[in-house]
Design a protein around this nucleic acid. Structure first.
Lengths: 145, 145
DNA sequence: CTCTCCACTTGCATTTTGCAAGTAATTTAA
DNA sequence: TTAAATTACTTGCAAAATGCAAGTGGAGAG
């Protein structure tokens, strides 16, 4: 990607979202970061979908460029790297969880418990706030270690 | 795509959603169907992103297979074809609009008016219901013509 | 009976992906 | 102290997906 040329996927909100989330691997990486507490290359690599190493490196750098992740040294081990979600990613939680609720409804072999969709429809804002608090808890613990 | 082999992108709700929406073109076609009232091949082709004819045919058939669209004869002209959104697509509206609100917040050159995000945060359910009513109005008019 | 419109399909060059292997900088273990 | 392992990548290459241009077949209009 030549960083001199601006992508013209702006303007229309759906097109803007498609430019980030309209990619299988970016989508799943956001899940791993926002919902599964994953922060390192190795953890992302271990996800059951089996992303390959070159694609993972490419997408992490794309998500960093897009302002969804920050790349920082791992406080636990200087040679390692952490990818943290930005506020922009965290603000994506509502959309992500909405998609999961929808998927839970239509995936015949869903592994998600009914309680998940239920708690979201009872209190959407509270559910999202809970996820965000979890993220902040994980990241504060990691950063101060 | 060999229809004999089942894709194992089920189980995890995010993975299920990624299998449908984690594709730029499917994503934008859903926008066109759900928010722009587009129903025909020709209308989809005219979208500013410039999908090519083979990809359009491929994605329309994929979305039909996935139960997001139904392919029917155009009531206005028997030789023409209409793609209608199913309930499954319409139920995706909440997630789609959530993404748009998020994109509107972060796209520096968004064309979406502030009133859009505002009305959604004031009354999410009402906003979605309005969109769904619009869709039903369009489709009922089309089907009975 | 020809001409146009519509919804595709086909062929082919280019791009992206997936897989396997390699690498460089630590860090742990013997 | 030195060899082995770990981490985060990069590289090369074959296979698949994409984009573009051109073609096809059926229905309807003139």
């Amino acid at each position: 990607m030549n960083s001199n040329e601006k992508p013209q996927w702006n303007g229309c909100p759906t097109r803007y979202a498609a430019g980030i989330v309209g990619d299988k691997w970016c989508f799943l990486l956001l899940r791993d970061v926002l919902l599964h507490g994953k922060r390192t290359y190795r953890e992302f690599l271990a996800s059951p979908e089996g992303i390959s190493t070159n694609i993972l490196a490419n997408r992490l750098s794309k998500l960093e460029t897009l302002g969804m992740l920050t790349r920082e040294a791992d406080p636990r081990k200087a040679s390692s790297v952490c990818y943290f979600p930005t506020q922009k990613s965290k603000d994506f939680l509502l959309a992500l969880v909405s998609m999961m609720v929808w998927a839970t409804q239509y995936d015949e072999v869903t592994e998600a418990p009914a309680s998940f969709a239920e708690s979201f429809s009872n209190d959407p804002a509270g559910t999202i706030a809970w996820y965000e608090a979890e993220i902040d808890r994980v990241d504060q613990a990691l950063r101060s270690s």
